[in-house]
Nucleic acid binder design. Structure first.
Ligand SMILES: [Mn+2]
Ligand SMILES: [Mn+2]
Ligand SMILES: [Zn+2]
Ligand SMILES: [Zn+2]
Lengths: 151, 151
DNA sequence: CTATTAAACGAGAATAGTTCTCCAAAAGTC
DNA sequence: GACTTTTGGAGAACTATTCTCGTTTAATAG
């Protein structure tokens, strides 16, 4: 199970936004609550659909702008660093990935470089696993270098 | 290291395409060779750029059509099942994912449900890891069910 | 090798996801 | 409450991808 999706009270939200450097608006508050109430890794469209129940006049542009504001503030993340464009995998062997979050480079890591992943308990609710892989996110040597310089 | 990216000879390619139910065209052959020569998980645009050296008149549409043909035939895969649309992560705790490749549902798996992932060797070339997560791909209970029926 | 049929190509229109621009409205500040 | 800054809404613009259609190329049969 997961930490319960508790909706923070108004003044707690004010504090969260203040600390994030975001002014407090009605739309932003409703969006924030929606995103944290949906534990389903929602798309902007899905958030829009839900929030329109509460604010029918909200625009999709506002949803996108606030998602970006939340991401920039580190309040949420994106599930995959590779939304946006298709990336092809021609290595059909079991293997893992090193992903540079800055330049989006993806480098293979052989299956045999890792101890096998072991589950402590059964997977929930009859999920049928085809394959798994481990994704290491960070900075490649080149980007780490550039990052040190511009400190 | 990895299996060397050997370019298969012409008649080998003919066989591969035949077995995949794909007719043999010049564009398709050059595209196939490009994709398997690039171990960098290329985007369609990157493949296009490379292939235009050899076939300047090739169209981006042809690149997309053949990528899809290769994917449908199981010759290549896509790196992420979530290109296409942004998906938000509001759970900032370390955790892992169960991803249904059919309905794209993403379910969290707590960090503590897994034995810690251990590397056998050092990571290559100074990659700086921020975090890692394991992605289990397969079919959720609902989709597995539907899949059994329509057999 | 040629005729016939089926599949693929190139060009460009269409669509989906996302960002940008601009002005009016709301929030933050004193 | 007046002034300044940020945000929201509407729609244009942009990027990634798919679709449509007429022409070309490949597969198949004679
Ligand atoms: Mn790979
Ligand atoms: Mn998650
Ligand atoms: Zn990098
Ligand atoms: Zn599913």
């Amino acid at each position: 199970m997961q930490t319960a999706p508790v909706t923070p009270p108004m003044d707690e939200l004010r504090r969260i936004f203040r600390e994030a450097g975001l002014s407090f608006t009605h739309q932003r508050m409703v969006l924030y609550r929606a995103v944290f109430a949906m534990r389903s890794h929602p798309s902007p469209e899905a958030i829009y659909d839900r929030v329109r129940n509460e604010i029918p006049s909200i625009s999709l542009g506002t949803v996108y702008k606030n998602i970006r504001a939340f991401m920039d503030a580190g309040l949420v993340r994106e599930v995959s660093p590779h939304h946006g464009s298709l990336r092809l995998e021609s290595n059909l062997d079991e293997h893992h990935h090193l992903v540079c979050t800055r330049c989006k480079t993806i480098v293979d890591l052989e299956e045999s470089d890792l101890e096998p992943v072991r589950l402590k308990r059964q997977l929930p609710g009859g999920f049928r696993v085809d394959r798994y892989s481990v994704e290491f996110r960070g900075l490649c040597a080149a980007c780490a270098e550039r990052s040190n310089h511009s400190d």
